[in-house]
Simulated scan of single mutants.
Amino acid sequence: MIEIEALSKHYRAPDGRVTDVLKSINLEVQPGNITAVVGPSGAGKSTLAKCISLLEQPSAGSIRVNGHDLSRLSGEVLRRERRAIGTVFQSSALLQRKSAWENIALPLRYLGVVERDISARVGELLEHVGLSHKASAFPAQLSGGQRQRIGIARALALRPSVLLADEATSGLDPEATVTILDLLRKLRDEYRLAIVLITHEMDAVRRAADAVAEIRDGQIVHYGVVKQLLAQPDSRLAQQLLPLAPQPASSELVLQLSYRTDVPVASDWLTRLSQQFALRIDLLGAHIEQVNGLQLGRLQVGIHFQRERVPLSQLLMQLEQLGLIGRVTAGAPLLKEAV
């Protein structure tokens, strides 16, 4: 596992001015989990990735991998302990004059591993990434997605417990992106890896991540388990993950709804709610998707009362029983607890 505690990074300009890029970052990723780190350009994602991989030394705080604080090490000891972190960059960074097989073997050869063990490990990794048939191909003969898969295999050559994927799907076509994300999920499960996925793509978060942290101005401003965030109608991260475009509405009441994760949503919820309370319900917008094997969704509905108005608490309670969590976005003053 990886534990990042009170991690800060600042840079000092020649004139003495100090720029704080990361400010007391706390993040923990357990084995067998993928945590995505998202945020706008300039928020600090790239600096965080460099600090995690120890390409940059943190100004303060700690980075512990399996209980060992790597941020306090240097020299040969640091190089040895860094083997616990495999890194995949936006560019696969393969050596163009070496075959796929030879690229994966590089870190093993560097450590002096015997040839028999190298062959076994490289063969295993090529099979895991689905490219055994491309072992002798050179990078120029591979597609972008295939090169990235070889890069992932090389990152795993030394059996790390943590994998840092820094914008690993950026620039790939949609089909290759899906392949890489599915591969990361497969490797997470088979090797029990703690994976940190640095990305700006919400599609990648929905498809692969177990948890997500949003970083802005060098600080983590939101964090949560993906499926739990998507069950919160007022979550800003949920709005980014399953966006709903604002819709004009002339309804008496506008609700934003989220699927519950602990009970299934009734397939006929709209009909049942309409009939029970004599409502006309307009579906103003919806985003429903499979996320980590769960059917999750966010909806916006407009409600018109065809008879008397219903107490808000009663309406929201019935929605919960039907598998939906709601919050009012417009029209709340029209509803009183006693009518």
Rank of each mutant, 00 (worst) to 15 (best):
N292C: 11
L270S: 07
L241G: 01
Y259C: 12
L244Q: 06
E252I: 08
S267W: 05
G293M: 02
A249W: 12
I288G: 02
D282S: 14
S251N: 06
A286M: 09
A245L: 15
Q256I: 12
V254I: 11
E289L: 04
A238W: 00
L241M: 10
E289I: 00
L296F: 03
S274G: 15
L241E: 00
L242Q: 00
H287R: 13
L273S: 08
Q240M: 11
D262G: 12
P264D: 05
S235G: 05
D234K: 13
T261A: 14
Q247A: 15
S251I: 08
V254T: 10
R236T: 12
L242C: 01
D234I: 07
R236V: 10
L255W: 05
I288Y: 02
A278T: 12
D282F: 11
P233S: 08
A286V: 04
G293C: 02
N292Y: 03
A249F: 10
L237P: 01
E289H: 03
H287G: 01
R260H: 12
L241N: 00
S235Y: 06
Q290M: 13
E252M: 10
L284S: 06
A278L: 08
I288R: 11
L283V: 15
Q247I: 03
H287I: 00
Q256T: 14
Q275L: 09
L257N: 04
L253P: 01
S267F: 08
L241Y: 00
R260Y: 06
E289D: 03
D268M: 02
R280C: 07
L283I: 12
Q239P: 00
Q240Y: 04
R260P: 02
Q240T: 02
A266R: 12
V265S: 11
L270M: 12
T261R: 10
R280M: 07
Q275C: 01
T261M: 02
L237G: 00
P246H: 07
L296C: 13
R272Q: 15
L255A: 06
S250A: 15
I281W: 11
A286E: 14
Q240L: 13
E289R: 10
Q240W: 02
S258F: 07
V263A: 14
V265N: 08
L253W: 03
V265H: 09
L257M: 10
L253Y: 03
E289M: 07
